[in-house]
Amino acid sequence: MSKKKRSYIEFLYILPFILLVGVFSYFPLYGWVYAFHDFVPPKPISSETYVGFKWFISLFSNPVKTADVIRVMRNTLAMSGISLLFSWFPMIFAVFLNEIKSKPYRKFVQTATTLPNFISWVLVFSIAFHVFGSNGAVNKVLQDLGVITEPISFLKSSDHVWFRMWLWLTWKNAGWAAIMYLAAIAGIDEQMIEAAKVDGATRMKVIWHIIIPCILPTYFVIVMLNIASFLSNGMEQYYVFQNDFNRDWIEVLDLYVYNYATAGRGNYPLATAISILKSIVSIFLLTGANTASKLIRGESFI
């Protein structure tokens, strides 16, 4: 068998999977044309339905839609902003967890705090629904302690939604995110820490002058990834937690696109137009963060 022929045959082996990628990842991009048409689902698009940038313009010319977009952007930026602001938490969590001398205890804490990462948002919501419900543990304990007299409806309220969403996100992810830092800490040269201790450095000093600087590059990558996905908070968490009380404060961009497309007589073109704008901004954020990473650390993360 000639080498050339063999290389084609090998390509044939992977062709089915290349086709799958093409169909499920690349072909949907063609759907972006719907944003430029007056598209009402069963009817196919044609040159007659072409409306150019009508939907894009309507986002900014129609006051109702503009208000919607501003509200949704506010929520998106706030939630991503809070996440970014507290993105150091898993790192600090890992640093002090590493200070625990008892290995079984450390393992236990790690196992316990990583568990929530592996359950779905629906389950998180179910847990929230029961633990924070009006007859749930939190309300009962607070009532028994005399802190409150009437149960608080934690879930059916718009108070501090952004922060509460961050808390759930952290509850779910922090233990898992800490693993990466723990690995980075394990990679620090033991001699460096020993030398510092011989010179009289306290534990806090070792943490501050050796451990933190050593794991800062890992943290930097996480921050860059955070920035790159600033507009994409995903919709699942917000979808399960949304209700009539908090919708104005919880609807992020991804959720809004879904809600808008499915509510009432769904407007597919407009929702698609929003997706497109989001994608364009996201690409800029990704390349921007990547360039920043190249400039500061000398390596890209893509």
Partner: peptide, 30 residues
């Protein structure tokens, strides 16, 4: 496998899909 036809290109073709997403509606219509 270095013998694979256009190996680098197809690898990138697959990996690139991690970085973009057509959106919910085009995906649903597909």
């Amino acid at each position: 496998r270095e013998t694979l036809w256009k190996r680098k290109f197809w690898y990138r073709f697959v990996v690139a899909t991690m970085y973009f997403n057509a959106g919910v509606i085009p995906w649903y219509l597909t």
